[in-house]
Amino acid sequence: MKKDEAILDLKNISVAYGQTKVLHGVSLHVMPGEIVTLIGSNGAGKTTLLKSLFATPSPYSGEIFFGGEDITVLPTHMVSRRGLSLVPEGRRIFPAMSVSENLAMGLVACTDKSHAGPTLKTIYELFPRLYERRDQRAGTLSGGEQQMLAIGRSMMAKPKLLLLDEPSLGLAPLIVKTIFTTLKQIAADGTTIFIVEQNANQALKLADRAYVLSNGAISLTGSGTELLSNEDVKKAYLGGH
């Protein structure tokens, strides 16, 4: 892949659940090595956009390219196997399994599992809490630890692009800060990151570039700092301070 070619490229996609149209011609792209965030209010279609990447549902018009390949109608599990890994909204860890088993589940889609050992070590270094609790039932972890686990689980597959859906959901501000710091570190280690967030303040501070989604369409785009100081964004998403 060339450096100047977008790793993820959404071309004018429109998505609907049955008759209900949610996204109307959304275009956005993520370059390799970037941290890109998508912010927007409830019901703007953020999660739907992520779901459409995994063909649940597929967009009814428009195309999705990942690493130059058209993945618009690829089955869900094949999309992940291309190197696109999602940290789902609400974490969705496997509560009855141990932490280490949860992490092992991140490997299911990898045909080549030779990187498992070193990757596991990296993840435990990023999240020492997970190492301490590797034999504990994942359901007994705190919310923040569960989010760390969900991120770690997605990292196990060594994705080219890590997608996060609302990583700050239901977490204390201090924990959110820790997690975003870690995300920065993950990005510095070479993983491209795309974050969908409602917590615009944190997300924009972290992001290289940002998109604002409102009512199913991109209403604004720019660098993270640009949007942070944008009056409309401030009013709508940052609580007007």
Binding site: M78, R92, M105, G106, V108
Partner: peptide, 24 residues
């Protein structure tokens, strides 16, 4: 084994499984 773990993971959360690339 991975297949057994996959079964249990599928029981616990199908959406999470699919997002990890498991062929449900």
């Amino acid at each position: 084994m991975p297949i057994g773990r996959a079964w249990e993971a599928l029981r616990e959360d199908e959406i999470a499984c699919r997002s990890l690339g498991l062929n449900h």
